[in-house]
Amino acid sequence: MNRFEYAHPTTVDEAVRLLGSTFDEAAVLAGGTDLLSLMKDFVVEPKRLVSIAGVAELAGLAADGAGLRIGAATTLDALVDSNDVRVLAPGVHQAATGIRSRQMRAMGTVGGELLQRPRCWYFRRGLGLLAQDAGGSLVERGDHRDHAVFGNAGAAKFVHASSLAPILIALGARATLRSPRGERSTPVAELFRTPAREGERESTLAPDELLTHLDVPTGSPHNATVEIRHRRGLDWPQAAAACALTLDGERVAEAALVLGHVAPTPWIVDVEGLRGKTVDEAAVAAGEAARKGATPLPGNVHKVELAKVAARRAVLAAARRSF
């Protein structure tokens, strides 16, 4: 890794003043489970690391009648261990337990998990986030078995890596960000974007913005995350689906469905058609909705099928049905 300056502020105000106007100037160091790997492989070379381990106000988890407030530096283990999360937002709990590395859960934070960089092997091997050469996309011409099957018409072919983002979006969570210019709040869905040119990032955060906390509404307890992973230990899902339902007896009153690991951003599925259906009907319809508009590459057709299965199972799991 490169030589860097290390800063360890104790307040958010101090932390954001230490960030830079570009990502090369400074990077936020939370658990370090992603950043340090990227630095060791020289994928990123920030000149300064701003550790937020000493910023007490960033950690912590609290529940009130309206929802959960989760500090960005809360560890993934804290989510897993929280009874409030397990009861009020089971989909969040399931997503956190799906991160099968004990080390990542112990060190990794909620903010870091949401804002981790894509796991694309072209990116990780130093060929760029969009992995392009003179002939166009390396991903398209190369081995794209784990790459995007939605939202991949442009240069970006990677999949968004966050396990928490889909369910947070499905639950309508909001993120609060701080910069030297002040504070702003945004839906979690709007933290992510699809970069069009090399140099652009997959998040909408400005280089000097720090994610401080999340507010997760916890109305209906009928929500779930279903991931399709091959290994029991640390492994990235090949597809995931998060579903939040409001039920009216046997029927679906409201539904939200977000896919993970299939597109450069968490992929929001249009599930208007689920309203009024029984849970079983809704599950089948969700599966069909989830595969609609897919644009797989020749080597990742299977991911469309996995998205469909994950979506169907997520609806059933949200309604506490077995699948």
Binding site: R119, W121, Y122, R124, R125, L127, D133, G135, L138, R141, G142, D143, H230, R231, R232, G233, L234, D235
Partner: peptide
């Protein structure tokens, strides 16, 4: 990688072993 001839998974993250 067929285009660059590079190895894409020379690490323990993507060179998957059983746990």
């Amino acid at each position: 990688d067929p285009v660059t001839g590079r190895c894409l998974n020379p690490d323990m993250e993507f060179y998957r072993l059983a746990g």
